[in-house]
């Protein structure tokens, strides 16, 4: 931010320039007395300077929550949700994924995490009246190569999954043109992707959903047990980048996470868990997550026509707006659907 944009006496601005303060933001981090010493200005001048700098730095004055509820401040994100594409699962999530904040989906391998993520990439492309965001999605793979065949199958089967949407609309959407796939094999390339390419896509309005599949793979593979301090630091940087993107562009961020086994010696201070596994990456990562979902594979099998699927259960571990509940689900040819019991 430029100094000239502040509405201040030229005398004060000149003193600030002499003091070699680089940015408006820096002024707020220096204490009032230090500022006086650096700039040689009087106390009342400093007060003016700080007020001007603070006004320039804040995004908006306090807004009554009522306006937010009525959706009059789109910048702050209204009650918008990204639908999951199945009424039963949407009911569990009270409409779908919230648009500002990190949603984590963890589960054992084969529990259907990637299936749900792929489905969300398609759901995001529907117009808002069908629970979508009317925009594309960016999918960052760190674990495996992107399951492109499965995506094609899901696209073909969309009319079957979304019977609420007119078929003419579905056939008019070019689903695969609006999914941007990134492969990041190490942390550096992930960082580059998140700091350069993804903001560009988001700023141009090409995408409105960010999926990282999975966060655990890189952080678990690149660090030894003894490097936990460095790992936590990297993890915090990574998650604050994600949070920043999510809030800046009011875009939902879905992070897929692996799970680790809980040993019987653990004290359960992180809360009761639906099973004997806990999401990977520990407390440092959990602090950054707003909505934590868990997918489990159950023993039973459900059969529908000639298709059969292992029964899954999607559970809310925590979320500011959701109770701890679960919903049975199954993976069919057309995607993940809730199973009513």
């Amino acid at each position: 931010m430029n100094w000239d944009q502040l509405e201040l006496d030229p005398r004060i601005l000149a003193a600030v320039r002499r003091a070699k303060l680089k940015s408006v933001r820096e002024v707020l981090c220096v204490s009032g007395l230090d500022l006086q010493r650096l700039t040689g200005l009087s106390c009342s001048d400093i007060r003016q300077l700080l007020t001007a700098a603070a006004t320039a730095c804040r995004r908006h004055p306090p807004i009554p929550a009522l306006l937010l509820h009525r959706g009059e401040c789109c910048r702050l994100g209204s009650g918008f949700r990204l639908s999951v594409g199945c009424p039963l699962l949407d009911k569990l999530l009270r409409g779908g994924l919230p648009v500002g904040g990190i949603t984590e989906l963890s589960g054992e391998s084969g529990s259907g995490k990637t299936q749900l993520a792929l489905q969300l990439c398609l759901c995001a492309q529907y117009p808002t009246q069908y629970g979508g965001l009317n925009s594309g999605a960016v999918y960052i793979c760190t674990e495996d190569s992107f399951p492109i065949r499965r995506l094609q199958q899901l696209i073909r089967e969309q009319p079957c999954l979304r019977s609420d949407v007119p078929p003419s609309l579905i056939s008019s959407l070019q689903f695969s043109d609006h999914i941007y796939i990134e492969h990041a094999a190490d942390l550096d390339s992930l960082q580059v992707c998140l700091s350069r390419r993804v903001p560009l896509l988001l700023a141009r309005g090409l995408v409105q959903l960010l999926v990282v599949d999975s966060v655990a793979a890189l952080f678990r593979s690149e660090f030894q047990a003894a490097d936990w301090l460095e790992r936590n630091k990297q993890l915090l940087t990574f998650s604050s980048t994600l949070r920043h993107l999510s809030q800046e562009f009011t875009t939902p961020v879905l992070c897929i996470n692996q799970v680790t086994n809980v040993f019987s010696g653990s004290d359960g201070s992180l809360g009761p868990l639906p099973s004997n596994v806990t999401p990977a990456l520990g407390l440092a990562w959990a602090n950054q997550v707003m909505v934590r979902l868990m997918m489990r594979r159950l023993q039973e099998t459900v059969v529908r026509g000639e298709q059969s699927s292992a029964l899954r259960r999607l559970e809310v571990v925590f979320a500011p707006h959701l109770p701890r509940e679960g919903q049975d689900a199954a993976v069919w040819r057309e995607g993940v659907r809730g199973v009513s019991t």
């Binding site: 995004r59 004055p61 306090p62 807004i63 929550a65 009522l66 937010l68 509820h69 702050l76 809030q247």
Partner: peptide, 8 residues
Amino acid sequence: LSNIFLVR
């Protein structure tokens, strides 16, 4: 709701 002033 109108008495809750929100700042992000």
